[in-house]
Amino acid sequence: MLQVEDLNTFYGKAQILFDMRLAVKRGEIVVLLGRNGAGKTTTFKSIMGIVRPQSGKIMFKGRPIQTLPPYKTCALGLGYVPEDRRIFSGLSILENLEVGKQPPRAGLEPWTPARLFELFPNLGERPHQRGGTLSGGEQQMLTIARTLMGNPEMIILDEPSEGLAPVIVAQLARTILRLKQEGVSILLAEQNLNFANYVGDRVYIVYHGSICYESAIAELSAEAYEKYCALQIGGG
């Protein structure tokens, strides 16, 4: 589905990603673990084309996408849910969904506001409420729903559980598994290990802009977890 090879990305003179590589198979949920500043968000932004990588290759459904602008990447069926949610606060829930709307994609049942409100009942209660007045949890739901309106075959979720109450996190986890059943591949960044364990199929650990560990989530041993924690300390 998605293959990233030897990605090097800079902000100004500072190199953020060093030969970053990862792969997501169709129908899989892959988790990137790593502390703040490890390079997870930059990886995602490079994939989407929001920042242009200096070198490396990004293949989506067998096509190179590393030079495409974000809107073209999105049109190919790759949806992006950013870390800070970035709801259009002056737009209503329905208008937010309208912005995300893309033509239907062959082989996928198209998402409509009605279908999304089934998935996220909270949003359906007040479809004309302004995005900016929603609670944190509702905003997280809306940002996922908005991305789904583009009928993506794969979505990238940047730290979806951050700042949410545990009960909402649990709800979110179930939603993500439901999306997997719908056939959507998912790449997500997390710092919450429990959450990653619950939803993920495979895991990568990111450290200083490259992958330092990779395994199936079931094999993510206590040892590797220790290593992950150790890196968090070492990184300071």
């Binding site: 559980s161 545990p166 009960v167 649990a170 429990n194 939803v199």
Partner: peptide, 16 residues
């Protein structure tokens, strides 16, 4: 526990 910490039965609630 109910609104914030959770009861530990659902994922993501059992904080290490």
């Amino acid at each position: 526990q109910e609104i914030y910490l959770g009861t530990g039965k659902t994922p993501g609630t059992a904080f290490p």
